[in-house]
Simulated scan of single mutants.
Amino acid sequence: MKNLSIRIQNIAPSLTVAVDSLAKKLKAEGKDIVSLGAGEPDWDTPEEICEAAKSAIDEKKTRYTAPQGILSVREAVAKKLKNENGLDYAPEQIILTSGAKHAVFNSLLALINPGDEVIIPEPYWVTYPELVKLLGGIPVIVHTKAEDDFQMSPQELEAAITAKTKAVILNNPTNPTGTLYTENVLGEIAKLIVKHDLYAVSDEIYEHFSYSESFHFKSLAAFPQMAERTLIINGLSKSHCMTGWRIGYVAAPKEIAKLIAKAQGQTTHHPSNIAQYAAEKALQMPLNNVYKMRDEFKRRRDFLFQKISAIPGVSARLPQGAFYLFANVSALFGKKSPDGKVISDSVTFCTYLLEKEGLAIVPGSAFGREGYVRFSYAASMETLAAAAERFAKGIAQLQ
Rank of each mutant, 00 (worst) to 15 (best):
N83A: 14
K191T: 09
V140S: 11
K164C: 04
T383Y: 00
E207P: 00
D149E: 03
L259R: 13
E130M: 13
D339W: 10
E158T: 06
A275E: 01
A163N: 13
T351Q: 08
L81Q: 14
E122F: 07
D345L: 07
P121C: 01
I161V: 13
V250H: 11
K82I: 13
I33T: 04
S98T: 13
I205Q: 00
G86L: 12
G334I: 12
E84T: 10
G37H: 02
A18R: 11
L220T: 09
A18E: 13
L398F: 15
A252Q: 15
I119L: 05
G86D: 12
R229G: 09
I120P: 02
W43M: 01
A316D: 00
S14A: 06
P123C: 08
T177E: 04
Y291E: 04
Q284N: 15
S237F: 09
K281W: 06
H196P: 08
S21E: 08
D116L: 12
I247A: 03
I161H: 04
L36Q: 03
I232H: 12
P319V: 05
A378C: 06
V17Q: 06
Q266H: 07
T16P: 06
R369K: 15
G394I: 03
M152H: 00
A279C: 09
T230L: 13
G37K: 02
F217H: 10
S214G: 01
G334Y: 14
H240E: 03
A257I: 13
A53C: 05
R229Y: 09
L398I: 15
D148H: 11
L287G: 05
K164A: 11
T65Q: 03
T230H: 11
I205K: 01
